[in-house]
């Protein structure tokens, strides 16, 4: 299990949080329980199984929703 933090652009609508959470959770290989979206700092944090998916996969899923991905960081 690796930990990832994706920095997004400014989030303005609180419903964005749920959209992003759901989008991240729907990616196969992401630990659903670990998905956290920090509204004020615009960060998406989650754990994932590197065998099944990558942080970039999740980043792309979020970008498809219309959110800007500024930076992706992965920690072992």
């Amino acid at each position: 299990m690796k930990k990832a933090t994706i920095q997004l652009g400014t989030l303005t609508c609180p419903s964005c949080v749920r959209k992003i959470e759901n989008a991240a959770r729907s990616v196969d290989g992401v630990d659903r329980e670990s998905v956290t979206v920090l509204f004020n700092s615009g960060k998406l944090k989650f754990d994932f199984d590197p065998g099944k998916t990558s942080a970039d996969d999740v980043a792309r899923a979020v970008e498809a929703l219309g959110f800007e991905v500024v930076k992706t960081q992965v920690k072992d």
């Binding site: 609508c13 419903s15 749920r18 959209k19 759901n22 989008a23 729907s26 498809a64 929703l65 219309g66």
Partner: peptide
């Protein structure tokens, strides 16, 4: 539409 795809009824 994107929100609906992830099952969110958004404004």
């Amino acid at each position: 539409y994107q929100a609906l795809k992830v099952r969110v009824v958004s404004i």
